[in-house]
Design a protein around this nucleic acid. Structure first.
Lengths: 198, 198
DNA sequence: TACAATAGTGAATAGTCATTCATTTTCCTC
DNA sequence: GAGGAAAATGAATGACTATTCACTATTGTA
């Protein structure tokens, strides 16, 4: 039944369905049956592709993070100066989060469920991401473009915090502005701070 | 039984117990019975003080936020210049979150559960908090100390994002550094940005 | 076409837990 | 210290749901 195509796209269909259902209702209020229903498969089929319900959430995060890093690699030319790279990261982050609201709800809200989820997986890959930003900061310092006072990893966390808050704020506001429209202003703040330059 | 004191501190005992249990296990993995047990009351007693399980989480947030705003009011003198006020806010935020790790887990991780929780309550009071920061930014601009380019509310969100990320990072790292030890460096970043001053 | 293997199904299972409420205990007043 | 109100109890209820598994359908092969 519901034969969209009797082939191997079931895993994808399940994940896509999970994004929608979990974004609407939250992880704990979404039943496996709901995901199965939307995916057009039987409840039991879910367990042919995922060990358990938690594994679905883990897989969702993996998939999102992979896309993120993949796009990042492709779109941040190695030869750019640090300031341009950082601007590109800011734009890209906001673009990617802003691209799919349901997915953004998962990453910004649902995945922050419990220390269990946060600690187990999300942070490993977040650390990689922070590392990428920290490298750019260090590059900028080496180039003499960025202030040497800032500890690169701390600066990276601060930058991530700003981007993350912008994303969360966008999720929670029902307005339909585009998230990436803030990129310019955000970059200005991050680069220049708020103190008036002498 | 378990007669710690037969008087009116039950509500407080229940909330205190809830902080500990929820911080350890997460909201959805904490049963009402667990909270009751730690509080030294019967399961049913919980329902004399709270309408349902959700209401406990809501109350937890209210209590935390009230303390936050109360301390903020008391410790940020009205006559201070904007930069000093902002530094004080940064210190205070990190101090208060850093004061009680269990409570911090609730506010940084557990309360971000679902749009349901995030949207319903946390944001109303967070908006007030953002408003306070935005006012300080506007004051700084009026004084000519802060850059006029920054839109105060956007700047406030960015600042909140930085503080929030520092807090979350502290929660997830098991190290026992004091959160407020980062205040100085964070203030430097927020005020000066990362671009080198000419 | 016959036969296995593989994939998919969905009803049944086995728990779990928020919430209720009949009963008991504590508190207060006279 | 009697009696009634208020507070507290905790066993029972009623739902709900992740996961399993005996069975069916599909697919590929000889």
């Amino acid at each position: 039944m519901a034969a969209v195509r009797g082939n191997g796209d079931k895993r994808k269909r399940i994940l896509d369905a999970a994004v929608v259902e979990i974004a609407r209702r939250g992880y704990y209020n979404t039943t496996v049956a709901m995901i199965a229903r939307r995916a057009g498969v039987a409840d039991g089929t879910i367990y042919l592709y995922f060990e358990n319900k938690d594994a679905i959430l883990f897989a969702l995060f993996d998939r999102a993070m992979s896309r993120f890093i993949e796009k990042g690699r492709a779109q941040i030319p190695q030869q750019l100066g640090a300031e341009h790279k950082l601007r590109r990261i800011i734009e890209l982050h906001l673009e990617l989060v802003g691209e799919d609201r349901d997915l953004a709800i998962i990453t910004q809200v649902e995945l922050r469920h419990s220390l269990h989820f946060m600690g187990q997986l999300s942070r490993n890959q977040v650390r990689d991401y922070l590392g990428i930003i920290a490298d750019v900061v260090a590059q900028g310092q080496a180039e003499g473009a960025f202030t040497p006072e800032a500890e690169p990893l701390l600066a990276a966390k601060a930058i991530f915090g700003v981007l993350d808050e912008m994303a969360t704020d966008w999720i929670l506001s029902r307005r339909n502005t585009r998230l990436e429209s803030k990129a310019e202003a955000v970059a200005g703040l991050i680069l220049g701070g708020i103190r008036l330059r002498a």
